[in-house]
Design a binder for these strands. Structure first.
Lengths: 169, 169
DNA sequence: ATCATTGCAAAAGATTTGCAAGGTC
DNA sequence: GACCTTGCAAATCTTTTGCAATGAT
């Protein structure tokens, strides 16, 4: 997805590293600390990006190489990360996108439909609005997902530039 | 999806019926007014519900019957309705859901993860908040999608009831 | 040794596409 | 008659699953 990441967002102080927390999760469930899980956790928390399963797999070594992890295992493990509270998952254009959850504040997204990048923003006001609406309808909120669609500044500028250029020809 | 529909939402006055507007759309594009398109338009605007392709197909007559429409044609036609501004499309649990757009006000949804019903609400404040955030980031908004996840009142009550019952046993 | 986990191959579910036959303008 | 549409079958794309082999505790 996007290599850009709004670094205006703060981070939430955490007592444990993602690795430690995941080990805790595994232990509590009688699951095993396998090489594949360690590899994927390293990749996922080694980058601050949004990504989907295919993009993660593309970054991993291909079949035959040392740290190769099969596609089914990637899917299974991403689901575990979500379950462990390390990642958040959402849908974009009909596919699953993942982003950091653990140690990262709640936020929403602006999605540029031209360059397909995601831009983050935090809004306490939005959460309040959401809760107010829910209260009126006696609805117990567990979470929400807001995506604002449009064109980012950079794409808008690029479009203006090329429009001007074509007019000048 | 849901048979419930918040009728607290008003409707937007429209100069043309969906049928007329679609005919206009077809004409402007040199497309044809076929029986299948008429059938589907009737079904879709004959109900005020959220639905996905499968649910629509389930309502249509089966293969062999008079008004049967094939699955590929349903998908193709729904895309045309979206394109014509008659329907809005969004993703829920990894599948496409459609709802009326033409003649219906902009709104957002509360989604009960227990009974899988959608409840609508309108918020002018949300739109303002969205536009304010976008302006700060020099982002040109074309639209947004907000889904609030949680448990609806009815499901919450049902859960309380059965919890009480099981406690009393 | 026990039992969770992996990789493979195949399945599954939703949606899309190529194409010949049929329908609309 | 020209050419857009349809239905069929098959393909596509993403994600999931059955299962035998492998690995962790």
């Amino acid at each position: 997805m996007s290599k850009e990441h709004s670094h205006s967002l703060g981070s939430v102080p955490v007592p444990l590293t993602p690795q430690q927390r995941f080990e805790e999760y595994l232990r509590s469930r009688g699951m095993r600390n396998t090489e594949q899980r360690r590899i994927l956790l390293d990749y996922v928390f080694g980058h601050h990006q949004h990504f989907d399963a295919d993009q993660l797999i593309a970054q991993l070594p291909p079949k035959g190489e040392p740290r190769y992890v099969s596609r089914p295992t990637v899917y299974r493990t991403l689901a575990e990360f979500v379950d462990a509270g390390l990642l958040r998952k959402f849908e974009l254009d009909g596919r699953a996108v993942y982003e950091h959850d653990y140690g990262y504040p709640e936020h929403d997204h602006l999605y540029c439909t031209q360059c397909h990048k995601l831009f983050e923003f935090e809004s306490e006001e939005l959460v309040q609005l959401r809760d107010r609406v829910a209260r009126e309808k006696k609805f117990r909120v567990t979470g929400h997902r807001l995506i604002v669609y449009g064109i980012c500044d950079r794409c808008a500028k690029a479009t203006r530039r090329s429009k001007r250029a074509s007019t000048l020809v």
